[in-house]
Design a protein around this nucleic acid. Structure first.
Lengths: 365, 365
DNA sequence: ATGAAAGCGCTAACAC
DNA sequence: GTGTTAGCGCTTTCAT
């Protein structure tokens, strides 16, 4: 069983990997043409079943694996999907990546992943590399993609999906997260418990998505007739560290808020940590609400009340949107906007404000 | 500026993406042959600088991006690296992925990622797909790869890296994590504080790596003359949930351990959670030590004492090992084993055992 | 139903 | 120093 055949031409070391068996080896072995092998592999129905059998056997014997690159080269489709996230170490993203990958591979795609660390230059180069790899489409779950490049791609009808509308170009697939509804539910939950002094820890406000969340919060507060004083708005970084710092800042305010909504769960977790170091108890003295509902949220102490943004929906919509743009006869090829639902998940980090009537009643029992 | 050229042959819709500009377009525009363009792009030194300039200009004008697939097809190298992890939602892995990706892209490689969820069938199919994609090498950071396949690949000299030695085959690159040293340091740290009743929460013992860690623990205990009673060994799952359950089981034992070492940080975090729900205080009544030193560890309450396994070293060694196997004149192409150091990071989840002499002295002051 | 041959975009001999 | 050409492994006409 000669696995390696030495280079016939000269004795210089062959730099290439011992080229794995090709379609020709199978054809030879099965005593058919390479075209027949190709057809058999691709299940073209008109092939003689007997030949199919022989081909299958030969494939088995020589251990043939079709070369995707060659396939892609001729078919023009790579069955590769690009997935750009901002920061894979932010626990929200692995969950998203996992879902995305599951769905994509189930559809016969492979996923080329890249994280940008919020760096536009990296994002840019990443995009270029993905294009050179001939990805069939890209899901952009971050920001800072140069508008020019996007415009060109859109013109070429290159399938692209953004979250929360990146560049406001027509003809782009957009995953519209329903921040308004989720955050409104959070605010109303707190208000219903009796909170009026509700603070907000935002994400980095130079980014679009954190701004949208902040605005949704302010709007929800206005709806119930509460003005948020500026000292009850703190800017975080969407990390635990940022949450700690922002919470500490809020703790120096007078009056103290009785509840804090956070722009994402990592921030909320940071806030919980900051509070643990004070005499204040959550939720007795102060309530904390997060956003995202990452896996970790339910394991916090106390388990975090948070607004769930469905990872599954996000990933599913992203994959579907890309397929709609890639596959010519996909049913939803004209749909451009995809709604991502959000909903409040009440756990134990939120309760009545201190000294509130219901709380006293409760204690009185 | 005609971006789209309609199909000349018939009026059926062209299924292929409007083929992005190719090397021929550049050649035409620059008035040179495609070979010259290729040479210019690949910085072959013998090209007339003037022509290089013209080619560059043409590339700019037509927006040319070399097609990696075609390149890979002819050069036999895809500049793709496969990275197989078991569970991307386990916080240890994103950190690893991030590092790996950074290093790989810095070297001109792209990363094709896959997570197996510990499912051998998935691992198998993932491996196949990676091979079909012609990845130049694969780093396997999980287990359950069919030995047969691995054997075949090794015979073909396909670059493969395993952690902790997967199949015990010769001629495989292995990342040897120094569990013994790290865990010994952990045990000695606890013993030095006065602990004798040290329990261990392992990972799922049907997997290799958890077994190795458990054995390292038992060995370290034996070294200091302590026998670990079976009721002080609990099997976890390397998840928070598993840590909680295992810790609860340990809490029913008599005598209670005064310290618990955990097979990974997620387990330790679970253990902390279980303890928070009891009157026992960490580290006053019981010490907890983790393993991995994930980012989260330092943010626990109290911050987790843990054995650091350097993510950076792991990723760096993996990339280097693969490159050694891929690139013909890589300096370390003969090195087969790569040592991954570990070291104890003492934080605040470990202290004297309750009622120990030093603790009493301390209180007495 | 099957095979021969063209060609996907590129690199690397080989000529000039 | 530059152009011509033969493939890389595959799919897909086009004959047969």
């Amino acid at each position: 069983m000669a696995v390696l055949v030495s280079n016939p031409k000269n004795n210089a070391p062959d730099r290439r990997r011992p080229s794995s068996v090709s379609i020709r080896d199978v054809a030879k072995r099965a005593g058919v043409s390479i075209a027949t092998v190709s057809r058999a592999v691709n299940r073209v129905p008109t092939v003689d079943p007997e030949l199919v059998r022989r081909v299958r056997k030969a494939i088995e014997e020589v251990g043939y694996l079709p070369n995707t690159q060659a396939r892609a080269l001729v078919s023009g489709r790579s069955h590769l999907l690009g997935l750009i996230v901002s920061e894979i170490t932010n626990p929200f993203f692995p969950e998203l990546v996992q879902e995305f990958e599951n769905l994509a591979t189930a559809q016969g795609y492979e996923v080329l992943i890249g994280s940008t660390s919020y760096d536009p230059a990296r994002t840019e180069s990443l995009m270029r590399r993905l294009l050179q790899r001939n990805v069939d489409g890209v899901a952009v779950m971050t920001f800072g993609v140069e508008e020019e490049l996007v415009k060109k791609l859109v013109e070429r009808e290159f399938p692209l999906v953004f979250v929360d509308a990146g560049p406001s170009l027509p003809n782009i697939h957009v995953l519209k997260v329903d921040y308004a509804e989720g955050i409104r539910q959070g605010v109303q939950h707190l208000a219903a418990l009796g909170h009026r002094k509700i603070a907000f820890i935002s994400g980095p406000l130079e980014q679009r998505s954190p701004r949208v969340r902040r605005d949704a919060f302010l709007k929800a507060m206005r709806e119930i007739g509460i003005d948020v004083p500026p000292e009850h708005e703190a800017e975080g970084t969407h990390t635990m560290e940022g949450g700690i710092v922002a919470m500490e800042r809020l703790l120096t305010q007078d009056p103290l808020p009785t509840a804090v909504m956070c722009s994402n769960d990592m921030t909320a977790i940071g806030a919980l940590h900051a509070l643990y170091r004070t005499p204040l108890k959550v939720p007795r003295d102060i309530s904390v609400v997060g956003f995202d509902d990452i896996h970790l949220a339910q394991f916090m102490l106390p388990p975090l009340t948070t607004v769930q943004m469905s990872c599954k929906s996000l990933a599913a919509a992203a994959v579907e949107a890309l397929r709609a743009g890639i596959e010519p006869d996909h049913p939803k090829s004209s749909q451009k906007e995809w709604a991502i639902p959000t909903r409040l998940v009440v756990r134990q980090s939120s309760s009545f404000p201190p000294d509130s009537l219901p709380a006293k009643l409760k204690e009185g029992r």
